[in-house]
Write a protein that binds this DNA or RNA. Structure first.
Lengths: 145, 145
DNA sequence: GTAATTTATATTGCGCACAAACTATTTGCC
DNA sequence: GGCAAATAGTTTGTGCGCAATATAAATTAC
């Protein structure tokens, strides 16, 4: 059996598991009118509001070219505003609206609902997260000095 | 700290690690003119040629609505043909061309090259794969009787 | 043997991922 | 001060993910 065997590819397992998990989020996010990446942005803003696009990109690990259209959609839904910064006019401050802050209430049940569907063993879940974090930091630091 | 905290989300770790890993494949696949999902399809066909779209969808875990355009692109690049089946005219048999089979040679170095960049501990890699497989099978069997 | 159902694949439409190119500020440098 | 380089964000184009719908052939029911 060769290394080119599909069933041996770690990335294939990772890829299909991730897609399946995001698919599982969909029915829970649909009542809020959010996609999964939009949910990530809202999670970040519920934690820390009034940040720059760059900060948001780092925290959510989304590309800025991906983030801009997401932020526009969230703005058009009335959940945030993109305000040009005073000190530095290149920057935009992303600010939740009152409606955006209220949306958090509707999201509160999501993590637990999903966990019940998905997580067999909580220890394994933590292990999976740790392994992914380790992989991510290897990859994102890979080509730096 | 709430369950709505971004830094606690397993899915976020999974999502960003997967995207980063696929990004790492890109420079290795670019000389072959393949994207990662196209590479998955070719891996599957190098293992088992002349299969139906349905079979390919199951093996690669790609949706048939995703697979059709991928197969068309691979066909237009001359690496496979989509032949209507004789026995059942609804089915198409996906068949590698000679060029498609030859492409395998150029792909042979990819798994090892990537593994060297990415994998610290081979045991952890296997663990990660096993956890993803377990998650995938939980999720794909979740709503069945 | 024909109608209803199921199955295999294709199409459409929206949102995301990302590289590359672009615009507009700001910061350094002299 | 004036100009080059760096930085923040946007735009563009290609491909994918996926739900919903469509098409067409095969199967089942009667």
């Amino acid at each position: 059996m060769s290394y080119l065997n599909l069933d041996v590819q770690i990335c294939h397992s990772l890829y299909s598991a991730t897609n399946a998990l995001i698919r599982a989020y969909r029915p829970l996010l649909e009542p809020l009118g959010l996609t999964y990446p939009q949910y990530l942005v809202m999670l970040s803003l519920w934690q820390e509001d009034g940040v720059s696009v760059k900060h948001l990109a780092e925290h959510t690990r989304l590309d800025s070219g991906t983030l801009t259209p997401i932020l526009k959609r969230l703005e058009s839904k009335g959940w945030l505003q993109r305000v040009v910064s005073d000190q530095d006019e290149r920057q935009k401050s992303i600010q939740l609206t009152a409606a955006g802050r209220r949306l958090r209430k509707k999201a509160e049940s999501i993590p637990e609902t999903l966990a019940c569907q998905v997580i067999g063993n909580p220890e394994e879940a933590l292990q999976l997260k740790a392994l992914c974090e380790s992989l991510y930091s290897t990859l994102s630091g890979a080509d730096k000095p």
